[in-house]
Design a protein around this nucleic acid. Structure first.
Length: 574
DNA sequence: ATAGGGTTAG
């Protein structure tokens, strides 16, 4: 037995696995020993293994045990086609061998990966029926499947009903909430966990910090970082990576770089990528590219994400030539550009007015352009007044059934600028006939460590009346400074006054106004927005920074805008 | 019935 164990450990390649199988067959141990089961499992799950070979071996077993079934089930669950695990599990149910908690565990894991929620629910009821409920690990798996499938309410329910929880159960829900865009709840659960005397580990802080990054929760993020240092969790690269990302997303690039530079654990590819992205978001194009080069010097090969980060940096900093060069160099590095790379270069070229080149890339790239490409091109056409190309782009958008009102607004504006009123009318008609909806915009602002959330036109905040009064004051003051409402940025099917009102109460304006009334004079105000900042808000916040003498930082979907004395760090280029 | 299952970054 001892020798079989050591033989199993040496099975690091498929040929070794086959040798061992032959050995078991020859010595007559194949049909009777546990070693066989472990061999099947090894072959089914190890990277050097081969699932189809494992399955062939399985079929040579006279009376496969539950464990033999499980070995294959586990293999299918972590294969590229996890959905097959459910039918394997069903075959098991019909067969002579009973399923155990592990079978359920693997099948559930497969559901999580295949996002098969209804199958997961069926498995859930079986877990109950088979009486596996006392199993903490299995319940945690269940919780995780719901969370990954987007059903956070069910995940919470599983968690609440657990008679016993261990750290992994807490971690699964904290991470689930963070990944499911319910960061506020993730943080309160993290706090509750500490209050209950549990000790967060690496996995916990990764989830908690990811939630802080989303919210721009600077204070809580700093506290988590302190805890990480105290508990020496920073020996873990993944933890360091999230710390860097958290500081970057909370607007502290310098702090992010400090952590990056002083890391005790070895930097990995993700570490470099995170830091490059951090500079890119700040619009520090040169620093990002510098780091990209340093990464190569450090012997870390850039991957698709590294290139994307560097390309975004070029885009945000307006480094057109550098970006094109970078894009062209991808092939030499053996990295295949994906949609996002193409999207970024197209955007980069378009913004630089190189519309024909951008168009040529769209038409020659190896994948179908999605709406984003045509929107980006259309935007460039508006900036450079290229009506012909704008029509081409819009036609594609219409064909693709785009329901983003921004596309219609842009096209309508392009026609209006040329006084082509018939066309303007046609676009309006098209707008009416479609179900045009916007993704609702919202913004966060942290004041005294507390996160406040604002939706567009929100009147739910406790001081909303004060906020709206402040906005009126702002409107009055900026008008004195020559501001004219930029009604380009909203739908054209409402009256002028209404239009003005609609953009007056964009979530970022509400958040900034709240910042003005609730923080000390001259202190910076920081806002996080889920979408890209709109042009009118951008113009208004520039003026606010000047009139109220405040530095205002807005992180939008793609980057940071640092408003100071009437201008923005993005140089109006975003 | 020998062991094997859950939570983690750009």
């Amino acid at each position: 037995m001892q020798s079989l164990d050591s033989l199993l450990q040496k099975c690091t390649s498929l040929s070794r696995i086959k040798q061992l199988q032959a050995h078991l067959l020859v010595t007559g141990q194949f049909q009777s020993t546990n070693a066989r089961t472990r061999l099947v499992e090894l072959c089914a799950i190890s990277p050097s293994g081969d699932l189809s070979f494992a399955t062939r071996v399985f079929h040579r077993i006279h009376l496969p045990s539950t464990n033999d079934f499980n070995a294959i089930l586990r293999g299918i669950a972590q294969s590229p086609e996890p959905a097959g695990a459910v039918s394997w599990y069903r075959a098991m149910l019909r067969g002579s061998r009973r399923v155990d908690a592990l079978s359920c565990s693997f099948a559930l894991k497969a559901c999580a990966r295949a996002l098969a929620i209804s199958e997961a629910m069926q498995l859930h009821s079986q877990v109950v029926r088979f009486g596996f409920c006392a199993d903490v690990l299995l319940r945690t798996t269940l919780l995780d499947v719901y969370a990954k499938g987007g059903d956070l309410d069910s995940a919470e329910k599983v968690f609440d009903e657990m008679p016993v929880r261990d750290i992994a159960s807490w971690n699964a829900l904290i991470s689930g909430l963070a990944q499911g865009h319910r960061p506020t709840e993730a943080i309160s659960l993290y706090k509750r966990m500490k209050e209950e005397g549990l000790k967060p580990n690496e996995v916990t802080v990764i989830g908690a910090l990811s939630a802080c990054s989303q919210l721009g929760a600077t204070r809580e993020g700093g506290r988590v970082h302190d805890y990480i240092t105290e508990e020496k969790l920073d020996q873990n690269v993944q933890v360091c990576n999230v710390v860097i990302d958290m500081y970057a997303k909370c607007g502290f690039v310098d702090k992010a770089y400090e952590v990056f530079d002083g890391m005790r654990s070895r930097k990995c590819l993700v570490t470099w990528n995170t830091m490059i992205m951090a500079f890119a978001m700040q619009g520090d194009g040169y620093k990002a590219i510098e780091l990209f080069k340093q990464m190569g010097q450090a012997g870390v090969e850039p991957d698709a994400v590294s290139f994307l980060a560097a390309l975004c940096a070029c885009n945000h900093a307006g480094l057109v030539e550098e970006g094109v060069r970078l894009f062209d160099s991808m092939k030499e590095c053996g990295v295949v550009p994906n949609v996002k790379h193409y999207g970024t270069v197209v955007d980069l070229l378009g913004r630089a007015g190189r519309i024909k080149e951008a168009y040529d890339i769209i038409t020659s790239m190896p994948m179908m352009p999605d709406v984003v490409f045509w929107q980006s091109l259309l935007g460039a056409c508006k900036t450079y007044g290229n009506v012909e190309m704008a029509e081409i782009a819009s036609r594609h958008l219409l064909e693709m059934g785009s329901n983003g009102c921004g596309d219609f607004v842009l096209l309508s504006n392009i026609y209006a600028a040329r006084a082509r009123w018939d066309d303007v009318g046609r676009v309006r008609e098209a707008m009416k006939n479609r179900d045009i909806k916007k993704v609702p915009g919202f913004s966060y602002i942290e004041v005294d460590g507390k996160i406040h959330k604002f939706n567009n036109g929100d009147q739910g905040h406790e001081s909303w009346q004060e906020i709206y009064r402040k906005l009126e004051e702002i409107r009055f003051k900026i008008t004195e400074h020559g501001y004219v409402a930029g009604t380009d940025f909203v739908l054209h099917d409402i009256g002028d006054e209404e239009k003005e009102n609609a953009i007056c109460y964009h979530s970022e304006k509400l958040a900034v106004a709240f910042g003005l009334i609730s923080t000390a004079e001259r202190t910076p105000i920081q806002v996080i927005k889920n979408l890209r900042i709109c042009g009118d808000c951008h113009a208004v916040i520039k003026l606010i920074s000047k009139i109220y003498n405040r530095e205002i930082i807005v992180r939008d979907r793609t980057r940071f805008h640092r408003f100071r004395e009437g201008s923005c760090s993005c140089r109006d280029y975003w």
